[in-house]
């Protein structure tokens, strides 16, 4: 049994390191601003990054690494590209930050800049804007990472959407100051990756 796509490339971000495919891109040295360090290490130039919450930063960095080609078209909306992401903590990291701004009646200053990130799927929007991805954008929440679940969601998206060619699909979690990202670039391929091997590979990468 084969999937209707193959895995073109993958990017992993943890508390310790960043890996693109099988190469380590950088390692966490002092941990003060790890996501900011990654931004500089990969030479990203996108000031909007600094407005984002941690979940969006983590997902945006992984997408940047996968689509690092200088020739990549960031001008025209690509209707054949989609984004399907999932995690465990939805936007709870930012939710906790927002909740602090409204907790005390005497110190009540609800911040729209923080509130806007209190939705799990905002990271799909940030990636869509950065890379002009105009196909499906979906976000799901599960207790734990599960490679089979992730690839099955991708398979259903491809099977159901004839004009979908390329999918950014993966796990983008940020909870208790820990980034946990595995983002894959999937290409439609009717003789695609063998299912069991792919699931084993994804679970191993994670």
């Amino acid at each position: 049994m084969n999937y209707n796509f193959h895995i073109e490339s993958h990017c992993r971000i943890t508390k310790e390191l960043v890996r693109l495919n099988d190469e380590t891109v950088c390692r966490n040295q002092d941990g003060q601003d790890w996501l900011g360090d990654i931004y500089h290490a990969i030479g990203m130039q996108y000031p909007k990054f600094f407005k984002m919450d941690h979940q969006c930063k983590a997902g945006t960095l992984a997408a940047e690494l996968l689509l690092h080609d200088k020739e990549f078209d960031r001008e025209n909306v690509k209707a054949g590209w989609g984004i399907v992401l999932m995690n465990s903590a939805s936007s709870l990291d930012d939710d906790r930050r927002y909740e602090e701004t409204i907790r005390d009646t005497g110190n009540y200053y609800p911040s729209p800049a923080i509130f806007v990130y209190t939705l799990a799927n905002i990271v799909t929007g940030e990636i869509a804007i950065r890379h002009k991805i105009g196909g499906e954008s979906s976000f799901y929440v599960f207790e734990k990472f599960d490679g089979e679940q992730m690839l099955d969601l991708a398979e259903r998206a491809f099977a159901d959407t004839p004009d979908l060619d390329t999918l950014l699909c993966g796990w983008v979690d940020y909870d208790a100051s820990v980034p946990d990202v595995l983002l894959c670039l999937l290409q439609r391929d009717e003789n695609g990756a063998e299912k069991k091997l792919s699931v084993d590979k994804i679970n191993k990468l994670y």
């Binding site: 939705l119 799990a120 799927n121 905002i122 979906s138 679940q149 259903r156 159901d160």
Partner: peptide, 21 residues
């Protein structure tokens, strides 16, 4: 294992799409 669709205001329709699939 249940699935959660959390896609801002379109969540209810996104959940139906996953059901159809």
């Amino acid at each position: 294992r249940p699935i959660v669709a959390s896609n801002a205001c379109i969540s209810g329709c996104a959940a139906q799409v996953e059901a159809f699939r």
